[in-house]
Structures are given as structure tokens and as C-alpha cells.
Amino acid sequence: MCSLFGLIDFKECLSTHTKNKILNTLARECQVRGTDATGIAYNFNDRLRIYKRPLPARKMKIHIPHDVNVVMGHTRMTTQGNAQFNQNNHPFFGHVDGNSFALAHNGVLWNDKELRMEESLPMTRVETDSYVAVQLLELQKTLDFDSLKTMAEKVEGSFVFTVLDKDNSIWFVIGDNPLCIMFYDGFLIYASTQEILCKTIKKLKLTAPSDILEPKEGEILKIDRNGRITTGAFAPRTSYEHWWRRYSPYYRDYCVDTPPNYDDLFSVAKAFGVSADEVQALLDYGCSEEEIEEMLYDPTLLHEMTGELLYAY
């Protein structure tokens, strides 16, 4: 599990200082979904720049240059590919038709190895499953709705992809993972969950957004540097588990409507010296049981995060 985040200042109404403040706050709120690495991508002086480090967002200062108005970011929780080798972290460089693009992914792909063999993709030092999406786009030698559709219909797994192109458009390819975009008069911000954005705007003391967009599975959105939105679509590969969760009346009746029982989680957390209040704060924030169990192995970070949640407001 990771988090995507970013900013488009389509009316160029924000100062560089304000944009950096927004991006740093966004990234730090996103680290609830991943602390192994943090990265951003942007265009500057007609060149795509990617800055990423194997550090949690709270330890990495984001500083974009003057006149950068479109930024795409990512915080990572490692599932495949050691984060200490920076080539495994997001965003990734890609090249089509003589131009560069950057790609970031939230989710897990499970047919990346099969695709590399089936499509005869070149060997690479990058070990991360997400990188196969870059290679599939490069194979098509173009970046547009058709190439993104083809890529999205070949990969299997959970995903939302964001792609920053040379023209400062961000493309959003929506699988079965969440994404939320909040619009203001002159700019927009986005992240993997609405909860992250709500925490961000509260810390930044921003007003309520003028519009909120949560694109659905199978949608492809292109938002250009001027804030214009164009859309496309693809046919998602629906796994049996996905079908069961979405359509089964048994799941709806006996799973969705049954309140979860976290007694085991509270017991395990207590053994790690984590209080029930801290666990509840993380649950209220939107963390899953699996995510909290993962955090128990990094107690310093967990106590820091829960301290902010319990006492910040």
C-alpha cells in the first residue's frame, strides 16, 4: 500500500512558498500509507525532473523551483523491490517518442513477471512490479488514452496510476484503488484518499474545496496544466474476489454490515506497548488492521503519528 499525491496550480495563483508548504503537508499526511520512500516529479526548464529518496516524508524536505506549477508525488510502502535501492522507488522515468514521462503507482501488480516474458520486455535493474507499466507504455511508443487503456487492460492486480507528461498534464488511470481530487479556484490537489486531503486542508487552514472528484474504476482522466479535464475508459480485469465483494449478496449481508472486531489487534498492540487509544486513533484515521499491524514493527513512527492524531487538534 502506498499513496499518490500532487498539485496542479492551473491559474498560477500560488506562490512557490505556498506550493512547497502544500506539497510537504500532503506528503506527510500520505506517509500513513507508506514510509519507505518519498518522491516527486515535475517539469523544469523543458526537462522532466524526479527527486526521490528512501526516506519517510517527514524526513524529506520537498522544495520545487520557481514557476513549477504541476507536481506529481508518491509515498511508498515496499511490497517488491528493496527501497534502499533508489531505482525501485516511485516515480519512475519513462520515454516515448523522444519525450520523457514519470509514472507512479498505488497498489500491487501480480502478473509483472509474466508480462515481461509475454511481451519480451527488456531486463532492467528496477525490481518493483510497478515498473512493468512503464515498459508497456514504452513498448507502444506513445502516451495517450489508447496506450494507457492497453496497459491498464494487460496488468492484473490493484492499482491507480498517475503519469506526468512533457506538457504538464497528469493522467489518472483508475483501477480498484481509491483516488480523490479536490478543486479550488485556481488550483487542485489530489491524494489516494479523501481522509488524507481533509487532514491536509485542515492543517493548512484552507477553505472547503469548490468541488470533489472521486473517479471510478475503469476511468482514465487527463488534467492539463490549465485544469481542463478529458476522459477515456478501459475494461478492468475483475478478479473473483473483486466480483464477490462487489456483487455477492452474502458478502453484503454478512460481511459489509457486520461491525469489525478488533479485539485481537488490541491484544497484539498491547504486547508491543501500544495503547488501545493509539490503535483506535489509527482506525478512526482510516488505517486498516493490516496496516496497523505493519506499523507495530516501527514503534517510534507509530507513537509519533498517533501523538499527532490524538493531540494535534
Rank of each mutant, 00 (worst) to 15 (best):
F93D: 06
F93L: 13
G94Q: 08
G94N: 02
G94V: 03
G94R: 10
G94H: 09
H95N: 09
H95S: 08
H95A: 02
D97V: 02
D97W: 14
D97E: 15
D97R: 15
D97P: 05
D97T: 13
G98K: 07
G98C: 13
N99V: 03
S100P: 09
S100W: 09
S100V: 07
F101I: 14
A102T: 05
A102Y: 01
L103D: 12
L103F: 12
L103R: 13
L103P: 00
L103N: 10
A104M: 01
A104C: 11
A104G: 11
H105M: 14
H105R: 15
N106Y: 00
N106K: 09
G107F: 02
V108Q: 15
L109K: 15
W110M: 02
N111T: 03
N111G: 06
N111L: 00
K113T: 02
K113W: 11
K113C: 04
E114F: 06
E114L: 03
E114P: 03
E114I: 02
L115C: 01
L115N: 05
L115T: 02
L115G: 03
R116N: 14
R116G: 05
R116E: 08
M117V: 10
E118Y: 11
E118S: 03
E119T: 01
E119M: 04
E119A: 08
S120D: 00
S120H: 02
L121M: 11
L121C: 09
L121G: 02
L121N: 10
P122M: 02
P122Y: 10
M123Q: 14
M123P: 13
T124F: 13
T124R: 13
V126N: 14
V126P: 06
E127M: 15
E127N: 13
E127S: 08
T128Y: 04
T128N: 15
D129F: 05
D129Q: 03
D129G: 05
S130P: 12
S130M: 11
S130C: 04
S130Q: 14
Y131V: 07
Y131F: 15
Y131Q: 13
Y131E: 12
V132Y: 01
A133V: 05
A133F: 08
Q135L: 15
L136S: 10
L136V: 04
L137D: 14
L137K: 12
L137P: 06
L139R: 00
L139T: 10
L139M: 08
L139W: 08
Q140T: 03
K141P: 04
K141A: 07
K141G: 06
T142M: 12
L143D: 05
L143Y: 11
L143I: 07
L143N: 10
L143W: 00
D144Q: 04
D144G: 03
F145D: 02
F145H: 03
D146R: 10
D146I: 00
S147L: 05
L148D: 08
L148T: 03
L148S: 09
L148A: 05
K149D: 11
K149P: 03
T150A: 07
T150S: 12
T150E: 12
M151T: 06
M151S: 08
M151N: 06
A152I: 13
A152R: 13
A152N: 09
A152L: 06
A152Q: 14
A152Y: 12
E153T: 02
K154Y: 00
K154F: 01
V155R: 04
V155W: 09
